[in-house]
Amino acid sequence: MKKILILLIGFATFSCSVSDDSLVTYQDPMPIETAVLPDAFVLDEIYEINLTYLRPTTCHAFNDIIYKKHNNERTVVIIGTVFQSNGNCTDLGTELEASFNFKATEEGSYIFKFWQGKDDNEEDIYLTIEVPVLE
């Protein structure tokens, strides 16, 4: 009986394939069209930053918001996961929304750079918004 059980488990394990070469996934940034921020931040308050981004094709799905800090500058990029199956992607250009929370912890101002795509020279384009911090 044990031999049959081991044989069945071995057969099930080796007959299933977890890799599907017809489904390819990768990460791809999606352009941010607009960002809604307050005119000013109050120190130590939390704010919801609302973004409108472009979903380029039916194969793109929201994955994450990447948020990088450098001094008082914040670079924000929306990352999508692209699911390609036999090249059946349709162009969409649909606008969707996402948001993240931000807490102003330093005096002065913050400069937000929201990734909007690339220009003709393949240089990154950013929507840049500066927001002062009030005490």
Results as ranks from 00 to 15, higher is better:
K2L: 14
K3L: 07
I4N: 09
I4H: 09
L5Q: 15
I6C: 11
L7W: 00
I9K: 04
G10D: 03
G10A: 08
A12H: 13
F14K: 03
C16Y: 12
V18H: 13
D20H: 12
D20C: 13
D21A: 12
V24D: 15
Y26F: 14
D28N: 11
M30R: 07
I32Y: 10
E33H: 12
L37T: 04
A40P: 11
V42F: 07
I46G: 02
I46H: 00
I46M: 06
Y53L: 08
Y53V: 07
Y53R: 09
P56C: 08
T57P: 03
T57V: 09
N63E: 11
I65M: 12
I66P: 07
V77N: 07
V77T: 11
V82A: 05
V82L: 04
V82I: 06
F83I: 05
Q84I: 06
G87Y: 02
T90P: 01
L92W: 02
G93S: 15
E95Y: 10
L96A: 13
S99V: 00
E106L: 05
S109H: 14
S109W: 04
K113V: 06
W115S: 08
Q116N: 08
D120V: 10
D120M: 11
E122P: 01
E123I: 03
Y126F: 10
T128Q: 10
I129S: 01
I129G: 02
E130L: 01
E130T: 09
V133E: 05
